[in-house]
Design a protein around this nucleic acid. Structure first.
Ligand SMILES: [Mn+2]
Ligand SMILES: [Mn+2]
Ligand SMILES: [Zn+2]
Ligand SMILES: [Zn+2]
Lengths: 140, 140
DNA sequence: GGGCTAATTGTAATAATGTTGCATTTAGCC
DNA sequence: GGCTAAATGCAACATTATTACAATTAGCCC
């Protein structure tokens, strides 16, 4: 919910501005990764004008608060729906329809940590992205 | 080894050109993610001049043959050292020194496939990146 | 509600990154 | 050593991203 994100913003001392609400709404409705200029175009089509500099700044802020995430493969931004496990960002991306599905799994984190440990590597953050077909697209 | 990559190139019907060797050498020596323009700068400092368009094209080719990989988090390119499991690209990145370590693990792939299956998602490709500290940097 | 002020946004200019079409060069082959 | 398809270079352009500073606004106080 956009409203939840707004509350988190305010709880951290940031203002609930109109541009921030607009960006959050677009991300929430679209449910697909969007570039800053995608967001600008979508808003323009609705008669709302945001400067691209503003959009960049808003996306940076949202990511720093884990309210949005920059997709690894495409570089597009999505709204985070889960309270991610600290430093862990995982998504499935349908390569047919583009829909994304966020997920989290403590066990997977643990196994990855153990695995890396074998290399002497001390893991702090996990990023992972699966691409494939969502259930709807797979049926076809 | 650069020589291995060159052989793979030729085996696939591509030419072993001087620019391709230069790009492979830089990637191999550096062992850190590099942008196309990073590569251009490094070569220029050595008195070698490659057009950025050429570098883009070489990196595209190398990635399409799985001889290089575009890092998820930074967008930089690295030389692949392993014959990756089909459609699976995994790296650890030291957030202190920037060194990267490629890895592969069939079991992890299987677990991820199973996990996604619970969402009805049919996984084809796995991308993952851990960030943390390599053994050297961790000791300090 | 109306003013105050720090936070936020807009503007303009610039930098960095990436792409395209076509001329020129070169690797691999005979 | 020539031939030719493949690869590279060049020029122009398009897109994406950042910076400095001016204008606006959200949240707060009264
Ligand atoms: Mn993230
Ligand atoms: Mn790859
Ligand atoms: Zn789908
Ligand atoms: Zn390190």
């Amino acid at each position: 919910m956009v409203q939840d994100s707004i509350r988190t913003l305010q709880a951290q001392g940031h203002k609930a501005t109109k541009p921030r609400k607009l960006v959050l709404e677009v991300l929430e409705e679209t449910e697909k990764p969007l570039s800053p200029y995608d967001i600008k175009r979508i808003l323009r089509a609705r008669g709302k004008y945001l400067n691209h500099v503003t959009i960049y700044r808003i996306l940076n802020l949202l990511c720093s608060l884990n309210l949005a995430h920059k997709m690894l493969s495409s570089g597009g931004f999505v709204k985070c729906s889960l309270d991610a496990i600290e430093g862990c960002h995982r998504f499935m991306v349908c390569q047919h329809c583009g829909a994304i599905q966020e997920f989290a799994d403590k066990e997977l984190c643990q196994e990855e940590n153990d695995f890396a440990q074998n290399f002497g590597f001390h893991t702090e953050h996990h990023l992972s992205e699966f691409s494939g077909l969502c259930s709807q697209c797979y049926r076809k």
